[in-house]
Write a protein that binds this DNA or RNA. Sequence first.
DNA 1: TAACATACATACATGGATGTACGTAAGAGC
DNA 2: GCTCTTACGTACATCCATGTATGTATGTTA
Lengths: 241, 241
Amino acid sequence: MDVRKSGGADRSGGRGAARQPRATQADRRARTRAALLESAARGLSRYGYGNLRLEQVAQDAGYTRGALYHQFTGKQELTLAVTEWVLDTWWQEVGVLVERAPDPVAALLTLARGHAVYCRRDIARVAMALRLEFAGQDHPVGRAIEQGYRDLLDRCTALIEAAREGGAIPDGPDGPPAGTLALAFVGAIEGTSIALSGHAPHDAPLVARAAAGALGLTYDPGEHPAPDRTAHRRTTRRGTS
Amino acid sequence: MDVRKSGGADRSGGRGAARQPRATQADRRARTRAALLESAARGLSRYGYGNLRLEQVAQDAGYTRGALYHQFTGKQELTLAVTEWVLDTWWQEVGVLVERAPDPVAALLTLARGHAVYCRRDIARVAMALRLEFAGQDHPVGRAIEQGYRDLLDRCTALIEAAREGGAIPDGPDGPPAGTLALAFVGAIEGTSIALSGHAPHDAPLVARAAAGALGLTYDPGEHPAPDRTAHRRTTRRGTS
DNA sequence: TAACATACATACATGGATGTACGTAAGAGC
DNA sequence: GCTCTTACGTACATCCATGTATGTATGTTA
């Protein structure tokens, strides 16, 4: 009921992010929101939606459930925000590289390697965990995830069709349709990336090899240099003290 | 499995499985247990452990929670029983084929194709769903799943090492260790199999291609004939009378 | 058919997580 | 300075799923 404030520690509201003695409201709000989003992403990645406890999310971010409910209407909206954030991040880090690729095959293999690098973070499994958890349901979170997945599949399908027309991907008479190939391609990338999470630097080339195999190509590592800059370090630890 | 031989409607207790007017207690018990296990496997595959509702499990099997708690001590034991059942089934259907393979590479590719075929059923995702859900936790179910997964990885690692010694799998100086390759191999298989679930007959060759790619080989479909007998039909629909 | 055990249903108790209402401190405009 | 709004914590209410206790019908054995 009463919170003593005499001790000099812990000003500027939450202690999840850096503390500035003179923070504007918008700053506080943005920092708190970011901390909660990151914590929720980590939690969703580890435990999934159903097992996620908002008390734990808030505590990991350095707040209480009160702060969380002040920023989000509830668990669902929080998860939707995390979803949007993760998809945006993916696009900024991986999608951009794919767009710059000179040809369809290079784009597909860049996608594979880029996703492997992206998955080095602990939030990697958010998308897959939510997609599995809500598969076949009719839940807003499931729809959002499924929409992102469908976009990715469409893009891969288009790239595969282009590569087939150019003769870069073999296309026998009884070969699978491009959409099925895209499913296999994305599935191979996701499965391998998650399995190899935490096994850099072998992750990227192995994921690319599996993805290339699904497409019916042989992967030449020299042909397309790895996109790995430095291993990602964000969202791995939260600042304490 | 079910032979009704008399017109009497709905005797012998539960109506989930076949009904026999003169069923012995052991028969009733076994049938009920099987129906509950199958229903639970389907539920776990779709919703995972946390989101699984025992009321729904019992109802889908044609019983109430009372029957479930009479056969199992609770959710955990039920899930452990499902886990054991799924792993046993996998071994009987896939593991046997792998053991019969003439050489390590054939064994690995047989494993890939066999798993794809195994995943045509709707209980395919049980193992992966539980493994993701309990990853990093210390839960009995997680331990059981992890144990099965570790056995699989060990076996694949041994096969990969044997294939490398025989020169069948390339092994460069800075190539990944066999354990890492096994992770990639299994991950590629799991991801591709789940993504292609419901896309027969392309599933098996595509999974094999992705798995072969992870190993650094090119997959020749003619070299190892597909193991697909007929598509599995068990555990796909429940009788509703 | 009398007694006992088993299979299963029904009703109740409990706990844990969500969501809501309310209270307090701190920024923002005057 | 005063007032309003925002950020956040605390306490309460509610719901839902599990687990348990009890009741009933059916097999089983004498």
